[in-house]
């Protein structure tokens, strides 16, 4: 998986490309640790080019959302394809996250 980070004002956008699974979720976790170490921004995950997500990836999103909300900011997920959206649906994440 490739992760690209862009920062505009107090919003960090992470664009994920490829697969977010047991192995690559640790990469995303590490990247988020770096983001949170630098402050408490709004967070956007751009999933337009993410082909696959497993529960390991969802747990990383859940942890990130808890941290963002705790600091009073917003987290948003954008561009998910049908397969990834289906996983948000079956796990109930569609109801607890801001998914566009």
């Amino acid at each position: 998986m490739n992760i690209t980070k862009t920062v505009v004002d107090n919003t960090v956008t992470l664009t994920l490309v490829g697969r977010l699974d047991t192995v690559t979720s640790t990469m995303l976790s590490t990247e988020l640790d770096i983001v949170f170490a630098g402050g408490n921004p709004n967070l956007i995950f751009n999933l337009k080019e993410l082909d696959y997500i497993s529960s390991a990836g969802l747990r990383v999103f859940l942890t990130a959302q808890k941290k963002v909300k705790a600091s009073g900011n917003e987290m948003k997920i954008t561009g998910a394809n049908e397969s990834v959206k289906e996983i948000f649906e079956v796990t109930g994440f569609a109801g607890i996250m801001n998914i566009e």
Binding site: S55, L58, I87, V90, T91
Partner: peptide, 12 residues
């Protein structure tokens, strides 16, 4: 560890 994986399995 939680219900996330189980929900994926049940859903698919």
């Amino acid at each position: 560890p939680d219900e996330i994986g189980l929900n994926i399995i049940a859903g698919l």
